[in-house]
Design a protein around this nucleic acid. Structure first.
Lengths: 263, 263
DNA sequence: GCTCGAACCAATTTCCTATTGGTTCAATCC
DNA sequence: GGATTGAACCAATAGGAAATTGGTTCGAGC
């Protein structure tokens, strides 16, 4: 048995180091199976078994006729997300979240199963226990999506995912970075998350929606504070990085859209 | 001047009749410019001018290297809409509309300009004056989208358009057909539309949202009646038009999804 | 029983060529 | 003189043959 899969394991090790080394083209394409078989001096069958493992782990994805690529298989939305992002600003996204996520929380309060509520509490705990801002944002995103999932409407979940994709677009990376580091009081966020899940657990749609709305309002406020020029930072994070647009607040009329990614 | 554009006008006429006749391939591809120039015995420049007019009118669209096509230029969403439709059912879509369009109506009540409100009343009139069910649905769609547009949030409008695309998918064609023919009392719909626009004109977000919600609830109810086997006559709906279900959803738990278009 | 190599299959890319809309420009025609 | 015309040329696309690449099958051999 050990003998049998020996070559595959050898190839697997080699491939793992190859993936970690990052010595790949920008598109993440790695050599062909035949080339790998030649390079590592193992049979193609062994290479394929190793690649199957890596694919199952989600480290690579393959397309017949094209090749094998590192990372996650891209889905069709990516392209459209770009065009959407180009025409929107952060405050528009926050406004949409403020009006949709409370609805999802309401539905979740009506339909979430016991096990799903348990999972929510676990996620809240994960957020609170995270030491780094990056991890907090990760678990926070997981909680919000889980609530959307518990709304029990596949189509609504798809809509949520579209919003989520736009929200997480790299164009906002910089602002989100600052928001994470400047997000002062963890306890406030923790309390709000708990309030949301408590309301869902209590099967109180109105309270769940309102709690979600409050949570997002707080988030929006902190975003406004960050993007405004004359803000007194809660804990003097970095030297004041320049933000050209102080108009972060949501206003009745809309400012001209920034042209982004216009190739 | 008349002499100058004479040939173009001649070509324009010929092309219009060609488009109306429907004697085109299934893909709606027109002959090449050179071929048209030959067929109609006018210069290619004249053909191009005529085509420019038709393109500006939205009757055709052109792509260099490919050809000239009748109808509207397709965008990238179509493909994704199919995959979304495959995983949803009508009631899911109605639930989403019930929770999003009221929000858009609220925003529109806060931000719609005077001219936009005027346009809304015009659209309501168009709906009421339409003699055929097909025209009514067309103008109804225009009104709903216009309200979404008046919400003044580009991103929210994009979300609405996604929902709209899925809603209008041909998969629901049959049901919508029956809904149109069975939609008995026009006056009820007319009153509801007027109520929505009145609330927007009065800058009353709460009332606008509630009016929109009521309107969609009525629509949902008629859909339920149509899709249920043992339905009664449409005339009787006046008596029961009062808030058929205080809860926006149909039921707390979800019916199993139908598998559609799973090739 | 398993692996290995080879051949074959199917999906995709690549390269080339023909087609087609877009543009320019001198000749031509009132 | 001004606009049109026809021709040539440019740029983007479609179509197709050939090469590439992941997916599969099968017999030889240890």
């Amino acid at each position: 048995m050990d003998e049998a899969t020996g070559n595959s394991n050898y190839a697997l090790d080699k491939l793992r180091t190859l993936l970690r080394s990052g010595s790949l083209d920008a598109d993440g394409k790695l050599p062909t199976e035949r080339a790998l078989s030649d390079m590592l001096d193992v049979s193609r069958r062994a290479v394929r078994r190793a690649l199957e493992v890596l694919e199952a782990e989600g480290l690579i994805w393959r397309r017949q006729g094209s090749g094998t690529f590192a990372g996650r298989r891209p889905d069709g939305w990516s392209e459209h997300v770009d065009s959407i992002v180009a025409g929107t600003d952060l405050m528009e996204i926050m406004e949409v979240r403020l009006r949709i996520e409370p609805q999802l929380a309401q539905l979740a309060a009506m339909r979430a199963k016991a096990g799903e509520v348990t999972r929510m509490y676990e996620l809240v705990k994960k957020i609170y226990e995270s030491t780094d801002a990056d991890g907090r944002e990760l678990w926070d995103g997981a909680l919000h999506r889980h609530i959307a999932q518990c709304a029990g409407n596949q189509f609504f979940l798809t809509i949520f995912d579209v919003i989520n994709r736009v929200r997480q677009d790299e164009a906002w990376q910089a602002i989100r970075e600052r928001a994470r580091s400047a997000n002062g009081t963890r306890t406030v966020t923790y309390g709000q998350h708990t309030a949301i899940v408590d309301a869902i657990a209590a099967r109180d749609p109105g309270a769940a929606g309102e709690a979600m709305r409050l949570h997002l309002l707080t988030l929006q406020e902190s975003l406004v504070r960050i993007t405004s020029l004359d803000h007194q930072q809660p804990e003097r994070n970095k030297s004041s990085s320049e933000e050209p647009n102080p108009n972060g607040a949501l206003s009745a009329e809309h400012q001209t859209r920034k042209q982004r990614r216009t190739e």
